[in-house]
Design a protein around this nucleic acid. Structure first.
Length: 169
DNA sequence: CCCTGATTCGC
DNA sequence: GCGAATCAGG
């Protein structure tokens, strides 16, 4: 990946918005956080003024009122081989999972390619966007990592079992 | 151990 | 210019 004007502009914007280097790296795709930091320095925009206390870290979604406690992870992993009907049925049968499959509201979501199910392949991120029963439903579609069904961002932020997080490392 | 940005230095 | 490796730290 090379630093096109477009990518540099996005880098500037996200850095100004206070995103961490690793968050920016995942959204840009194809670069490491080191690359982002290096670029930031070369662009001389290191100072972000804001000494916003501690690292913002992705936080949990605020407790929703009156809703049963959600499981810590999706009940099942979406794979490319699951048919659309089966997928819809799965979520239909498990309304709780539908809620859980969304990142927390204050988490930065990478730019999604918004692919349809049939557009997914072995190397596209299978993180679902939105309500599976809605017409706007799509999948992230960014490049998935070697070791999982999600892109770098979603494999970290996704509600993944701790055991799998460790194995991925 | 998770993460953060900063710096160095071979390419 | 680029970014992996490394450092220093929360």
């Amino acid at each position: 990946m090379n630093w096109t004007d477009e990518r540099v502009e996005l880098l500037k914007k996200l850095w100004a918005d206070g995103l961490s280097a690793s968050q920016i790296a995942t959204q840009l795709g194809g670069v490491s956080r080191n690359a982002v930091i290096g670029k930031v320095h070369r662009l001389k925009l290191s100072a972000r003024g804001r000494t916003s206390s501690t690292q913002p870290r992705a936080k949990k979604a605020p407790a929703t009122t009156g809703v049963a406690k959600a499981p810590s992870r999706p009940t099942r992993t979406v794979t490319a081989t699951v048919g659309a009907t089966a997928l819809a049925a799965q979520f239909d049968a498990e309304p709780v999972a539908r809620q859980v499959m969304r990142p927390a509201a204050n988490v930065v979501v990478p730019i999604s390619r918004k692919l349809a199910l049939i557009e997914l392949n072995e190397r596209t991120c299978k993180w679902p966007n939105g309500d599976p029963l809605s017409e706007e439903f799509s999948f992230c579609g960014n490049e998935a990592g070697e070791s999982g069904p999600y892109c770098g961002y979603h494999s970290k932020v996704a509600y993944q079992p701790v055991s799998e997080r460790r194995r991925a490392r």
